[in-house]
Design a protein around this nucleic acid. Structure first.
Length: 275
DNA sequence: AAGAATCTCAACCGCCCCAGA
DNA sequence: CTCTGGGGCGGTTGAGATTCT
């Protein structure tokens, strides 16, 4: 039952990407932009699944990615967003320029979760663990009731999975939960204070699905000054990104002879003007 | 120094959504 | 309206790195 695999499994390589494969993928994307991912492996000469290519690109090779651990500010934002959105990592990632959903998810699972537990906060409900236990005894379904009343407009699958991930707190109880979160305890409160202060802006920003995604900034065939836009939102300009690729700080330019980039750069970085 | 335990994070898997035929 | 395929998402895994004993 179910659908066919996303690609022909035969002859499809799995596992860590090699520098050579990275190079091929980068070359292809820089030259052609993002097109049908399913076709990318063939066109790029990769023995990989299209999905794998997309993942590799979005999570690792994208030039606008920030590297390194999340800053304290970013971490706080993640906590706050998670309190509102639950495990909707992609939505959360949209609000953190240069960070991927995968990265945030990993950071959550490895760092933040533990931190919150240490602070006595349930990482799922963002409630103090003691308080939660008491409430559960008294009114087991009080949370569910709170959230049933509000937003039924979003049909995101994570909502249907709420019983699984326990993220009953989503945008539903936005304004309400915020203050509650702010009063979780002194530390948490202080940390979230800044965010709380900007609640209204954040609210409108967070759940306005029409809000342009930050990711838009790195789409290659940019028709406008992406440099200006990136500057505006605090991302490196495309020139910087280009430099990033040239530097290849993370995927060993020298390993795979990135001279080729100089060939494609003229094509690629003029694409913005043409397209 | 070496083996065990733990941590980190890139990558995969399977499911769902949605656009287009 | 139904079906199909592509893209995207969240959960999970496992190899390598790091820390501990």
């Amino acid at each position: 039952m179910g659908r066919q695999p996303c690609c022909d499994k035969l002859g499809v390589k799995k596992g860590p990407w090699t520098a050579e494969e990275d190079k091929k993928l980068i070359n292809f994307i820089l030259t052609n932009g993002q097109c049908c991912w399913r076709a990318v492996p063939k066109l790029a000469g990769l023995r990989r699944c299209g999905k794998s290519c997309r993942l590799r690109w979005t999570n690792y090779l994208r030039p606008d990615l920030k590297r390194g651990l999340l800053t304290d500010a970013e971490e706080q934002l993640v906590i706050d967003l998670h309190a509102r959105l639950g495990n909707r990592w992609s939505k959360i990632a949209v609000r953190l320029p240069g960070r991927t959903d995968n990265e945030i998810k990993n950071h959550w699972n490895t760092h933040i979760k533990r931190k919150l537990l240490k602070m006595g906060i349930d990482p799922v409900t963002h409630e103090p663990i003691n308080k939660q236990a008491t409430e559960d005894d008294q009114t087991p379904s009080s949370h569910a009731l709170d959230h049933q009343t509000v937003d039924n407009t979003t049909n995101h699958k994570s909502q249907s999975r709420q019983e699984n991930d326990g993220s009953s707190n989503s945008e539903d109880n936005f304004s309400g939960s915020l203050n509650e979160n702010c009063s979780i305890n002194d530390d948490e409160s202080r940390l979230l204070e800044g965010i709380c202060d900007n609640d209204k802006n954040l609210l409108s920003c967070l759940f306005d699905d029409e809000t342009p995604l930050v990711d838009e900034s790195w789409k290659f065939p940019s028709t406008c000054g992406d440099q200006d836009y990136n500057n505006m939102i605090g991302l490196p300009s495309w020139d910087d990104n280009h430099q990033f690729l040239m530097d290849c700080q993370d995927f060993g330019v020298h390993d795979f002879g990135f001279d080729c980039v100089s060939n494609i750069e003229m094509n690629t970085f003029e694409m913005g003007d043409k397209l």
